[in-house]
């Protein structure tokens, strides 16, 4: 089978131009790098490392558009009980002493050295070449050791049977799941649902892009502003960074 004859570079340019026009939100600052779709038959490449930069100063404590968008995209039930899955959640913080308030979205941090992958007995937890940490649910036996090992409480266990699941990522009872960074969208050249929803709300608090490309918007911004990785003391090199905490 042959790929379409359009060279990736040209595809990049035409898509890029359209997106630049649509999404330039401030001079010199792109909301996200447009991601170009990988041609069919080509595996994810380690030349790319997907990541996010979350500007907590732009995140509104009353807004949960990212959470709702994720739930819709992945057809997750509305969380009521502690057994219900939450791939992304809003965390409200108050600094001890000063009382400064911060609101931010929390999800799988897509570590470069993910503890969940280290501990998984069957290799069901794995990191894709482009840095996205996933669960291969065909191989997951549901031991929950990864949930014990994750410092971010990013994972959920499917506590109930799933019937007629319509979400983009298949999910089933007795396996562990978490944020996929919307891998199905990223592979199509789109951005994750939460990033899109945040931009639609006008907050533009989440910047998504390729950390391995020094010219990407996310890399440029990481160079120019102070940012933090959560539990930086563990040295896991998370793919998600935060501003303003």
């Amino acid at each position: 089978m042959t790929a379409p004859a359009v060279p990736p570079r040209r595809q990049f340019l035409s898509q890029g131009a359209a997106l630049t026009a649509a999404l330039a939100i401030a001079p010199g600052l792109l909301l996200y790098d447009f991601a170009r779709a990988r041609p069919p038959g080509e595996p994810a490449s380690s030349a790319v490392r997907w990541g996010m930069l979350i500007d907590t100063t732009q995140c509104d404590s009353g807004c949960s558009a990212c959470v709702t968008a994720c739930r819709k995209e992945n057809a997750l039930p509305e969380p009521v009980r502690l057994t219900d899955p939450q791939w992304i959640r809003k965390v409200e913080l108050e600094q001890e002493g000063s009382g400064r308030k911060v609101s931010l979205p929390m999800m799988c941090q897509h570590c470069a050295d993910p503890p969940c992958v280290d501990v998984c007995p069957t290799g069901a937890s794995f990191k894709r070449a482009d840095g996205i940490v996933l669960v291969d649910k065909h191989r997951c036996i549901g031991c929950r050791y990864c949930m014990m090992a994750c410092p971010y409480k990013a994972r959920s266990f499917v506590h109930e049977p799933v019937t007629d699941h319509s979400g983009a990522t298949p999910r089933g009872q007795g396996t562990v799941e978490s944020c996929t960074l919307c891998v199905h969208r990223v592979d199509r050249g789109e951005i994750p649902a939460c990033v899109e929803a945040c931009a639609r709300e006008g907050h533009q608090a989440i910047l998504f892009g390729n950390l391995n490309d020094p010219d990407s918007a996310i890399s440029r911004r990481l160079r120019s502003v102070a940012s933090t990785r959560l539990r930086a003391d563990l040295n896991l090199d998370p793919g998600v960074a935060y501003e303003g905490i």
Binding site: M1, R38, P39, P40, G41, E42, P43, A44, F126, R128, A129, D130, L134, D136, H138, V183, D187, R188
Partner: peptide
Amino acid sequence: QRDETVRLGVRGGR
């Protein structure tokens, strides 16, 4: 194809 798609990210298989 399942393993290639899930683990390697190969899309558009037959």
